[in-house]
Amino acid sequence: MAIEKKNFSRRDFIKQTSMFAGGVVFVSLINPMKVVYATKKPEGKGKWYGIAIDIEKCIGCANCARTCKIENDVHKEPFFFRNWVEQYTITNDEEILVSSPNGGIDGFEQPVPEEDIYKTFFVPKMCNHCTKSPCTQVCPVGASFESPEGIALVDQTYCIGCGYCVQACPYGCRYIDPDKGVVDKCTLCYHRLKDGLDPACMMACPTHARIYGDLNDKESEVSLFIKEHNCAVLKQQLNTVPKLYYNALSQEVH
């Protein structure tokens, strides 16, 4: 009888699925609390890129943002940035005013007269290339990934443009390219690194406020800078372990 057969094979199917499900449960039981980060720092002595930005040296000229837009063909409209500069102004009334007109490219104005300013400084922002990057963790298709050198990249020929990584990035470093319909972000000028050139923003900085290099090499400029200065990262509480270190970072900066 057909129905009998159906019944039997369904039981088979259920048996198989329950075995599979049981297997999954079992594996997760013997391997408890394994964190599901997308990437793991590779072992061995490859390069592991990190960045340091010295806020004390930043003059807010936004040449980093300007050159980045040119070098990487980023849209000129003020909604798409791989790299931008923010101006923080803390008034004597302890009010925190932040501005970033066109990512700093249009130049900065102080919002209050100088005698009302308690403290003011610039903070250049870019992708933090986190070690435990939340953006690559959530990519449903594996189009966003961390390269073996520790650079968070997007495979634009594979990205489906769901925007989940844009939501997952706590630093607002990703955007959807309105023409291609895929995500775009800082690549630390991966194409320039491979040619032995400095990333465009590093090259453009007139005061050498930006440093990058190999964190595995403890004698590299960036490693020494981090060692000698009291550096902090953004949003440490989220445990994204950024590789972008700021010297003299004020706690008001988010």
């Binding site: 599901v36 980060y37 298709v141 594996g142 769901c162």
Partner: peptide, 22 residues
């Protein structure tokens, strides 16, 4: 809603298992 709607099949072909969406 996807930026590249015709690539949605990738989610079934190469699901990235750390993603809640995959």
């Amino acid at each position: 809603h996807l930026g590249q709607p015709f690539r949605f099949y990738e989610m079934l072909i190469t699901p990235h298992l750390t993603s809640a969406m995959a």
